[in-house]
Design a binder for these strands. Structure first.
Lengths: 127, 127
DNA sequence: GGACATACTTACATTTTTTATAGTATCCTA
DNA sequence: TAGGATACTATAAAAAATGTAAGTATGTCC
């Protein structure tokens, strides 16, 4: 995470691809270990930071924080802070974020199919 | 690429997530800079190594090779070698690979929408 | 014999992502 | 005064992904 180096070839390649392939643009946004699961969790409604953390047991607070910020920057989720003590912060999918839900569902179905497929065809690699 | 370290926390996290979230499982397979574009290119039919390379101008041979191998390992594409000189190798989506095409199309549409959305809402980050 | 074409592979370097560990601020309760 | 709850942030290190540059094999053409 942190910040991508704008002089790297990697940056240039992504930029170029994302510009003329919207599917790559999308996958740049949804890529990364946790973005998709977070959206999945939020598909059923708003959640607090701590609730998300509990749903994603292995995530570090740093990662959760980074991913949430990234998704927020991309306007996929919104963040509402309530001035209470202890603080309460709620995350929720935006309109465009909700548009993602059916796609994620399809990806999930494809994943299931694929698991069956490779099981039948004797493949052992997972990643 | 190369090989993921099976003792790392990262490995454990992916494994755990992929096991009970098929959408994450899918995104592990399709993640990476080039996997989705390659599938996009192959959506219209089989292509040779060199043809793919020309379609993806900035890709290095190493990356193309790695990604193709990965997709092949996951049974998303098939590889046919013809015993000619110079050699001819053709890549083609498998059945389950073709199932991906509509999903990629939707991702593309979502990407377009998202681009409009952030343009309207004055967001400047791209990644 | 030497250059050309194709489809790679290998060793190494750099960049990007993810994890580990510890700390911050605030108010409430015991 | 200490400890808990919440939502983070800072810094460093490990791991993974990507890029650079060069090399391999084989037969055909000149």
């Amino acid at each position: 995470m942190s910040r991508i180096k704008e002089t790297s070839t990697n940056f240039a390649n992504r930029q170029a691809l994302a510009d003329n392939c919207s599917e790559v643009y999308a996958s740049n946004i949804l890529g990364g270990q946790w973005a998709i699961v977070i959206c999945s969790c939020l598909a059923t409604g708003k959640l607090r930071f701590g609730e998300l953390k509990r749903l994603l047991p292995n995530i570090t607070e740093r990662m959760l924080s980074l991913q949430l910020r990234k998704l927020e920057d991309h306007k996929i989720i919104s963040r509402s802070v309530y001035a209470e003590v202890p603080p309460r912060v709620e995350y929720e999918l935006t309109d465009i974020g909700y548009e993602l839900v059916p796609i994620i569902k399809q990806l999930e179905q494809w994943g299931e199919m694929h698991k069956q497929y490779v099981k039948k065809n004797d493949c052992d690699n997972v990643f």
